[in-house]
Design a binder for these strands. Sequence first.
DNA 1: ATCCCACCTGGAGCACACTCCAGGTCAAGC
DNA 2: GCTTGACCTGGAGTGTGCTCCAGGTGGGAT
Lengths: 124, 124
Amino acid sequence: MLPGVSVYTPGQVVEETGFSLDTLRYYERIGLLEPIGRNAAGQRRFTQEDVGWLGTIRCLRDTGMPIAEMLRFAELVRKGDHTIRDRIALLEAHDRRVEAQVDNLREKQAAVQNKINYYRSVVD
Amino acid sequence: MLPGVSVYTPGQVVEETGFSLDTLRYYERIGLLEPIGRNAAGQRRFTQEDVGWLGTIRCLRDTGMPIAEMLRFAELVRKGDHTIRDRIALLEAHDRRVEAQVDNLREKQAAVQNKINYYRSVVD
DNA sequence: ATCCCACCTGGAGCACACTCCAGGTCAAGC
DNA sequence: GCTTGACCTGGAGTGTGCTCCAGGTGGGAT
């Protein structure tokens, strides 16, 4: 293989990103990914940039951003550099939600731990 | 109102727990709540204990426990005190998942924040 | 040549957790 | 006595995010 621009097969992208092949196709279909390049046989060949974008998607998904909002973000990215302030605003709003989410998680987790400790005190 | 055992109307439980009336009925239907007591007209009257249990449900739900597992937990509670060790095991396993979830959230949030900072550096 | 495997498409199906609806009951206030 | 509003039931519908399927292509190893 010529080491030109580095290119990934679907299988390699599944490996790298943890998204299933079906999910990758789904993301392309709904426009979360730009149309992925193809080889002569019509098979997808992902660029480094595609894989990087999928890393971003992974962060946003894992922090609970709905797909609809990721689509809005993708749209901003597509529109070019003059949307950077909007992207900051979108990500900051998301970041605040993540913060709240972590706080709530921690609070409820503490309650679960109290319950565990109560049960331990009963059982000992 | 006689201040006997304290009793809650559906509306009051919605208020207290943040679950919708439909969700409360749904939880009763699937057996996550024991059958709720009724007044003469067939309307639900929740006890303090029901509301307390709903608080537990709220913690488990908010920390991402699937309903199927909450059902298993409810089952253990129903079966009585000899299941306390099993309950501890179930909650500890859940607690570990919550811990992992928070860690992942924090990690991905940091990446989002890096992105924000990068965008800020571009825009400034 | 043949087999296998990774990949392709369009479209249907699924799991989860609710949420809504039609049609009805009852009690309280005007 | 009528309206309003909170509540009831069984059952259907919804949104989200995938996931699976049938039927087919093309390339590399044996």
